[in-house]
């Protein structure tokens, strides 16, 4: 299976949701897509059949505003039909709201406020160790999110407790709502920051390439005594020139013309994945 090509199918699902629901965080959805596809389809032991049992792998989308990408992936994984999401997303009374919530099958914890996810993941990783379970815990954070102090409280605890069953992923797209992450709150030497907190750091130069991400996740799995952070260099709005590397696409809704253009470009780029 070509997972990069598959990611373009799910990008179309996201664009459909946001265009018809008239809201969402499309830029981050696009940057994080290959990370989620790789985790759910190649790395994690998690499915509608084992979800809710004690020993499946755990996933937390700490950058919860990119829920549309997770809806698309969970639907593709069989947790619920994609048509149900497209029909209900952001509509009055829906459970398919703009951030993770536990009423949706496949979602572990509510989200929406940044900086919470890593702490919850630390708790899950500790529980897995206590239970003697082999389950691993994955959490995806945005790079802008790293300004939250709680992230570093959790980073401290994860290395203190040698949580080698914990893998964090930074969706390093270098943009946040107000502009460049480096201008809003400088965070270069991001790898050194994490390594100084006792984490093993794996850089992925192309965080929108599933094979590169897969190799990083396999290396993380073999890591012992330390938690791992994968810094995935991604492109915000990846998949369409209209959006790529543009901060105002953090949560912009495409016009009809833009929507058609991006769908067309997704298709072209998908076909190029096979070349």
């Amino acid at each position: 299976m070509n997972y990069n090509a598959f990611s373009y199918d799910l990008r179309k699902d996201v664009a459909d949701m946001i265009y018809s629901g008239k809201g969402g965080h499309i830029g981050g959805d696009m940057s994080v897509m290959e990370i989620l596809v790789t985790l759910y389809f190649r790395v994690m032991n998690i499915s509608p059949d084992n979800f809710g049992s004690t020993d499946h792998d755990r996933f937390i989308l700490s950058k919860g505003h990119c829920i549309e990408a997770l809806y698309a992936v969970l639907a593709a994984k069989g947790f619920f039909p994609i048509d149900e999401v497209k029909k209900n997303y952001l509509r009055f009374g829906t459970e398919f709201i703009g951030h993770p919530n536990v009423k949706i099958p496949g979602i572990e914890i509510n989200g929406g406020s940044l900086g919470h996810g890593l702490s919850v993941a630390v708790g899950m990783a500790l529980a897995a160790k206590m239970n003697g379970s082999g389950s691993r815990v994955y959490v995806v954070m945005g790079d802008g999110e790293l300004a939250e102090g709680q992230v570093w409280e959790a980073a401290m605890a994860a290395s203190h407790y040698h949580l080698d069953n914990l893998c964090a992923v930074i969706d390093r797209n270098r943009l946040q709502i107000s502009g460049s992450t480096e201008e809003v709150m400088h965070q270069e030497n991001i790898a050194r920051r994490w390594s100084s907190f006792g984490w093993r750091v794996i850089d992925v130069e192309n965080g929108n390439d599933s094979d590169s991400l897969y190799r990083a996740f396999m290396r993380a799995k073999n890591n012992r005594f330390r938690p791992t952070v994968i810094i995935a260099e991604t492109v915000k709005g990846y998949g369409s020139k209209i959006m790529e590397n543009k901060a105002d696409w953090h949560h912009r809704v495409p016009t009809e013309k833009e929507y058609r253009e991006m769908i067309s470009e997704f298709q072209k780029r998908k076909e190029a994945c096979w070349e």
Partner: peptide, 25 residues
Amino acid sequence: EQFIEVGIAEQNLVGIAAGLAKCGK
């Protein structure tokens, strides 16, 4: 083995507890 010291970090303290509870603790 059933006691977790989180240090002076109350936000993390409660988040960790939620993660533990999700896994049956």
